[in-house]
């Protein structure tokens, strides 16, 4: 039981990164109602972007972050215009398979460019660690948590305080009314999608220095992301934050207390996903399940 302070700290740090990982997914779904099965690939591309910049020019991933996010946002908006906009009104099966296909293309483009090996970016802070009393904190994770916190706070500020942000929320809550008051739906959709990709890219940049990255990382991130937003409630951004911390605590607890826990911790997300879908498909604070 003496692990408890360490467990809480580890889970909190993980939860912060999970929050950043899913908040883009929740944002783009909330606004466009298209669930992006390629979100994990946005994270993966962000990680490789940071890796490549560090390799070529030696620039620290944290300095490259703003640039990569801007590129990610523009790329996301373009992708939305070209591929997702045409299927907005199509059956779900088309949207699911389309975004799944985009993910597949990006994943294998990465395999071709960077090869399938695992890599990571070595920064001065990546392997540093601090000790507070009995609790150890890995420097890379702490910095990652800090960046995630700033970005999530910025997103909330943007959603609450700016014109665009309010329009985004209006679309999420009252689509028809939003159209009636003159919100340019298509532009807002593209913007929300671009932002969600930018947030995914930022997650990747953080992951590039706290662990190994590979072209196949996106898929695991995607499934974990689903578990989190289903747990929190599909379509709720606050729910996604809650879900992220709950999953982080559950996973950390399993890896601490269950024999062979680190292996089983990977399965927690699937168990959670399945249980929530069966017991309470609307999640903690989500809306009713509509198809």
């Amino acid at each position: 039981m003496h692990y408890i302070p360490q467990l809480i700290v580890d889970a909190l740090l993980l939860g912060g990164i999970y929050t950043l990982m899913v908040i883009g997914l929740a944002l783009s779904f909330g606004v466009t109602r298209v669930i992006n099965f390629a979100h994990g690939e946005a994270v993966m591309i962000g990680a490789y972007g940071a890796y490549t910049i560090a390799l070529v020019s030696g620039i620290d991933p944290l300095l490259a972050l703003p640039l990569l996010m801007v590129i990610g946002c523009l790329f996301g908006m373009a992708l939305f215009k070209v591929s997702i906009e045409p299927v907005l009104k199509a059956p779900h099966v088309n949207q699911i398979l389309l975004t799944f296909g985009i993910g597949l293309v990006l994943q294998n483009a990465a395999v071709m460019i960077w090869k399938a090996d695992e890599r990571s970016v070595v920064t001065p802070y990546a392997y540093s660690s601090f000790q507070f009393g009995e609790v150890f904190v890995a420097g890379g994770r702490l910095i990652g948590f800090g960046v995630a916190l700033v970005l999530v706070a910025a997103l909330f500020f943007w959603l609450r305080r700016t014109e665009f942000g309010r329009a985004t929320r209006a679309l999420d809550e009252q689509r028809d009314a939003a159209v009636l008051v003159g919100i340019n739906v298509k532009r807002m959709y593209a913007l929300a999608f671009g932002l969600s990709v930018a947030l995914g890219v930022a997650t990747g940049v953080i992951l590039s220095f706290i662990g190994a990255i590979s072209p196949f990382m996106g898929f695991h991130i995607l499934v974990k992301g689903f578990a989190i937003i289903v747990l929190g409630g599909l379509g709720s951004i606050v729910g996604a934050v809650l879900g992220a911390f709950l999953l982080a605590f559950a996973e950390t607890a399993v890896s601490y207390y269950v024999p062979n826990g680190t292996g089983w911790a990977e399965a927690v997300a699937f168990a959670v996903l399945f249980l929530v879908l069966v017991l309470r498909p609307r999640g903690i604070i989500g809306q009713a399940v509509a198809d």
């Binding site: 591929s83 294998n108 483009a109 395999v111 071709m112 399938a116």
Partner: peptide
């Protein structure tokens, strides 16, 4: 060459 056939599948899907 790694990734080519999967990439083709993705393109076909899209």
């Amino acid at each position: 060459m790694e990734g080519v056939s999967q990439m083709t599948f993705g393109l076909v899907l899209v």
